[in-house]
């Protein structure tokens, strides 16, 4: 008889752990999603910057080219 009663208590403890693990999992999921969202935005900005850098570098190289040519002449 007492076993059944104790079982209720044990189960309550287990449930409480389960619920809280679930909460942790939910938090981690939210965190994951939010982080991915923010990383994605950052990634967007970085790749745009990268491309702009490339294009700036290409622009700049035209100057060096001319300097070089001027030098050679």
């Amino acid at each position: 008889m007492a076993e059944v009663q104790r079982d209720w208590q044990h189960r309550e403890f287990i449930e409480s752990v389960t619920v809280n693990v679930l909460k942790i999992v939910e938090f981690l999921n939210k965190f994951d999603i939010s982080t991915r969202y923010r990383l994605s935005k950052l990634n967007d900005q970085l790749s745009t910057l990268e491309r702009r850098m490339d294009s700036a570098e290409a622009q700049l190289s035209t100057v060096f080219q001319q300097q070089q040519e001027g030098h050679n002449e």
């Binding site: 909460k23 942790i24 938090f27 939210k30 965190f31 999603i33 939010s34 969202y37």
Partner: peptide
């Protein structure tokens, strides 16, 4: 700590 999770602001504009 678990209760504290609620305090985090986790933006996701998706």
């Amino acid at each position: 700590y678990i209760r504290g999770f609620d305090r985090f602001i986790l933006p996701d504009d998706t």
